[in-house]
Amino acid sequence: MKTERSRMSRMSVSANSAFLMVLAAFLIVFPFFVSDYWIDVCVFWGINVLLGLSLNIIVGEVGLFNMGHTAFYAVGAYTAAILSQRFGINMWVLMLLSGVAAAIAGNVLTAPIMHLRGDYLLMVTVGLNEIIRITLINNPFGLTGGPNGLIVLDQFRVFGRVIQSPIDFYVLVWGCVALLLFALFRLQRSRIGRAWNYVREDAVAAESTGINTRWAKSLAFMIGAGIAGATGTIYATKMMVISPDSFTFAASVSLFAIVILGGTGSIPGVILASGAMMVLPELMRDFAQYRMLFFGLAMVLMMIFRPQGLWPSTRWSTRVKGGDAE
């Protein structure tokens, strides 16, 4: 039985792993041929991949429509900035702490709304995003610096080397992506990943089959928020200035679009879509005033011709091919 199973999953996984290998090869070669400017573009691509993958856990794996994911990203970035300013804590420690802070926020803030479904949840998470952003603007206890935001002077250090240049950040960000991919791979193939999918498919049936759906949802929100928060630390050190303007509703919408356009639940899809969202606008700088027009057009065309996303999740399609195998 074991060989049968692994043969099946190998079929569906092979396309994904081919994609990841091509991507890895590209990312290794790429920096040798381009300017710092394009390396920077890829740093932000990587940051968006981290955010997209974290949101994909919530939206893709569990099917919870969260359109306020930037809130957790903001919690992480501000936690890192505030603690760095006040206590000068090491950035690696802060990355962990801001991840934990965002995970706690993810758990506490979504606890009262966990029972909501579909578009109802979506509306409330939009509100959540706005509440966090406005709170940041209001400068509670003089912590967040109001509309001007905060300056982050400290940087990540590796054996005395300061991570500063575009290529340093490039390695840091894509290294984090690799780690995250490995972790997601493990989770997807465990009872936790399966429980998430059962909840997405039919929450009532999942509950009646012995799955604590509330636990599964909370866990997804905590992990997703935690990763977004840790990513916020990277963003804060990269930008050196963070302000509420970086954590708008529009940013949440584009993250949500990344997950949906990529192909809900699909890791290659998220990577491709966030690349498209980051890189295409850069390529079209000359047509900057038409950018949103193109974006809107692309959205409409996608929904008409490829509603399943750029790279649909293999879980939802490829396995069918092997169904008759005995």
Binding site: R5, E201, T209
Partner: peptide
Amino acid sequence: LRLFENLTCFENVVAGQHCRCRAGF
């Protein structure tokens, strides 16, 4: 019927074992 329509039969049935397993995050 309330099945997990987009998952395989095997995955559907393994769901039953979820509550008998303990592995955490």
